[in-house]
Amino acid sequence: MKAFSDIRVASLLALALLVAGGFALPEWALFLMTIGLAKALVSLGIVVQMRAGLVSFGQGLFFCIGAYVAGLMANFAGLTDIFVLTGIAVIACLAVGGLFGPLLANYRGIFFAMLSLSLSMILYGVLSKMNSLGGTDGLNVAAPTFAGYAPEGRALSLSLYLYTSFIVVAIGAVLRTGFDSQHGLVSLAVRSNELRVEYLGASVRRTNAINYVISAMLGGIGGVITGLAIGHVDPEYAYWTTSGEFVFVAILAGYLSIPAVFVASIILELVRSFSNLYFPNTWQMVLGVFLLVIILTLPNGLGSLFHRKREGGS
């Protein structure tokens, strides 16, 4: 119970900070924070799977589905309410994740990484060819409304930011509980020793499938918010390099701390926007060097957390 109230206190503090920041920050920073937090949700989905030893290179699939839910609903159904859109995105990702999760749960390591990547590339291919959905140009997304409230300008940025902050804190709290739960502990056990988990009587496949579905929903929510914040969606959301950036953030943050994922994601967005201004052609290089430095200099830290020891270490 103590830990439970700790989570509550931490969440309220985080929320208070975020809300206070919302009224203090300039509009460009609000936008950047919104994107950073929303994308962090997608990376958090990778972290959920990393805790069981899997790295998905295809979270762009759900990110893209979420974003297209926003775009399609606005363009074809006239729906702009952010609560409804988020709900639809979650349901859509639940359905797709529920379909592919049990299939992908049979795979491990690079097979899992690359098959999840392939799935997102299929969506990329489909969307690029569908001219009714804008093809490679994508769709513009109408500004969201908030249960009837239709803000504009700075009020819109602020509303979206506050909405994102609430969602992010709520999800962070739920996931912390989940990480400390039986399922969370069994996930860590799967990461360490699958064989043992099966020989204790739990299904590794089920564990992986559940984590995949959770990550699907997180990806969808991240996508719907990003689509609404940017006001435009295109197939690039599902491209493998987009997924790669989510993996980058997950590696940077590691799987132990949830707030670290948000921080890492916001750092990435900051680096991206400054690089775009000052050195547009080398920003990926900066990321690449950064990634290598993390993996190389922390052999027993973040990077080595992926190293699965096959036996109890004798």
Binding site: V55, G109, M285, G288, L291, L292, I295, F306
Partner: peptide, 27 residues
């Protein structure tokens, strides 16, 4: 440095190389 490590680490490392080379080509 990564031969004895998990195959997924190899993917991450070469992803880093990919990012670097893509910009190196542009430069």
């Amino acid at each position: 440095h990564f031969y004895h490590r998990d195959e997924v680490i190899g993917v991450l490392v070469t992803y880093g190389v990919f990012l670097i080379l893509e910009d190196a080509i542009k430069l």
